[in-house]
Amino acid sequence: MAEPYLRVEGLVKRFGPFTALGGVDLEVYPGEVHCLLGDNGAGKSTLIKTLAGVHQPTEGKIYIEGKPVAFRTPRDASDAGIGTVYQDLAVNPLLSVTRNFFMGRELKGLLGTLRMDEMNKIAHDEMLKIGIDFSDPTQAVGTMSGGQRQTLAIARAIHFGAKVLILDEPTSALGQKQQMGVLKTIKRVRARGDIAIIFITHNEIHSRLVGDRFTFLALGKTIGAGTNSEIGDEEMRRLMSGGAEMGDLKQELAAI
């Protein structure tokens, strides 16, 4: 527990003149759920896209197991063990569960043929491990519920060796019961002990339920961090809505 698997130091990301991230620090440990919290536009998605190799940082460093790394493509990041489940879920609805599961990393036999039976079995077994018994992996993903799609994406990331699992608002588009399903999945992954999870959410209750450690972002900066027990409910609400800036905003509003 002493050494974080992934460490981010002073990360800055500018899009032209716009500073989306203005110096963010983050540490994630294996076997922990690290909740990334903050208002809309705070820079959460930008931060994880930078970790996932979609964006390159303007300044700052990313360390994996203490060694500095630079990701030029999403492939680099996933090879380094960063598995990302995007907010707008990267799935192909018309393709089967198996074809989605192995997308871009298909098991090939002679002549580039797909080892379909083997792939079907692996997809089924991997999803079963984290809690969905999906009897027919040849079924199209379009027929799956939102929660099942999240599970597919998570199972896929884990199967392909993710050491850091990044989940960008995995519960936001789901109904109550399905949200609980995803939280259970997160708990099961956490229980393995070897995977660090970054969990982005706007839901205070969810983060309380599964989070070990919190980092709060506002306007591209870290405005607070701590473990679940360190941060009280009052403090949590203040930080989630942008902290001090919220007060300034009230004054500004009053001045109009």
Binding site: A90, P93, L95, R99, F102, M103, G104, E106, G112, L114
Partner: peptide
């Protein structure tokens, strides 16, 4: 084949 999988995926959801 793998290329076939890629062809379907490209037409279905390019970004994914």
């Amino acid at each position: 084949t793998q290329i076939g999988n890629w062809i379907y995926a490209t037409g279905d959801n390019k970004e994914a």
